[in-house]
Amino acid sequence: MNNAYCFCPNFLTRVPVDNIIEALISKKNSIFLDDKNKLMSEYSKKLQGAPDDFRLLTLLEFHISETQKITTKVNVPNVDSRFLLEALTGRKTLERKLLASADRDTHQAIVDELKEHNITKVFPHNFTQSYNSHLTRGFEYQEFKLELEHSLALMIGEKKARLENEYNSTLANCLKAKRYEVRDQTLHGKSSTGKTAGSLDLAIYDENLKTIIEPVRLKGGEEDPFYVHLNKLLDNYNPLRVEHTFLVVYYIGKRKSFTKFADDYETRLGKLDVTKLNQSSNWTFDSYTRAKSEHDSIRITEQVGSVNGSAFVCTHFFADFSD
């Protein structure tokens, strides 16, 4: 998917001209403009210095194809944050919308509205990353399952983390190192609790939300934490009803009891008590199947069912973090 940029005039003075050329000419990304040509007028005022400024202005005026230009009707009189927001929201497009901002503070007043319209802010330091899509990895379920197992295996080998938020941060960093786009789901408005960020789930994006990971630490067969986290993963934190989700259990009980813990956990999956789940939703649980694992310290079980008519595959990872 290509990008569609709306450039804050000050942004164009903060990045190398060659980067703008690469984004618009080489990569064929689109640019938002307004129907009264006010943005181009502001660009002309800003780009009046070095020869590179003239080169960029010439590029913007004469070397971008008409199909790359997304011209919108803007009623805001001055080119400010509201003007740029109206330009970005005035036309629907399947391209990813981005506001290129010179710094974090200038357009802070419209951050909530940018989030509401799924518009991403980019800055001079990460502009090139925004149009080099190969820097982030696409989501494919079977491949991701293997990478998640490998990440947990690395964590078990290191055994550096002790608190749940430390485990979660390490897991997120492992997946980021594998080039997945990892976000804390709460930071995107999905949480309805007051829990700290460390105890909340992780989300994997590939343009859109693709899967959610809900981690939990368990010492044994505690029922309440299990049902709370299962409910969060399949219902509370999943309003879009993404099909694939992952419940990652950090087992911190006695090492000799890990196999029994995993067996008992699977037994529970076969006879779930739906009265312990959100009673405003309709639940069905069809089957669970043990999947192949490369490590004896990690067990993987796939659970199939539906919530309110939407099918899901919840993959449970039990990872032995016992001392």
Rank of each mutant, 00 (worst) to 15 (best):
K121F: 09
T106A: 13
V248E: 08
T275L: 12
L202K: 06
L234P: 01
L154C: 08
E140F: 09
S101P: 01
F83I: 08
L269C: 09
I212S: 00
S322R: 01
Y205L: 04
V79R: 04
F83G: 05
K159L: 09
K97I: 02
L33Y: 13
I70V: 09
T267Y: 03
R179T: 09
L114K: 04
D52E: 15
F318L: 15
V274R: 07
S280A: 12
Y43G: 04
Y141S: 13
I204P: 02
G309Q: 09
S310W: 12
T58L: 10
K45T: 10
F62Q: 10
T170G: 03
L230H: 03
K219W: 08
I25P: 02
K115Q: 04
L247F: 11
T301N: 11
E222K: 15
A177N: 14
T193C: 01
K97W: 05
H134F: 13
T315P: 06
R55H: 10
N132M: 06
N231M: 02
H295Y: 15
K69I: 12
N308G: 09
G198D: 04
H244R: 11
D273V: 03
K232Q: 14
L114Y: 04
I213L: 15
L33W: 06
D35E: 13
S151C: 08
S81Q: 14
E61L: 12
L148E: 07
L233F: 01
T245W: 03
S133V: 02
L163A: 13
V182C: 10
E164N: 03
H125M: 04
P9K: 05
R241M: 01
D184P: 00
Y288M: 09
D201M: 05
I25W: 01
A4E: 06
K210A: 08
N3G: 01
G309H: 06
M155H: 07
L152Y: 00
P16V: 01
D263M: 05
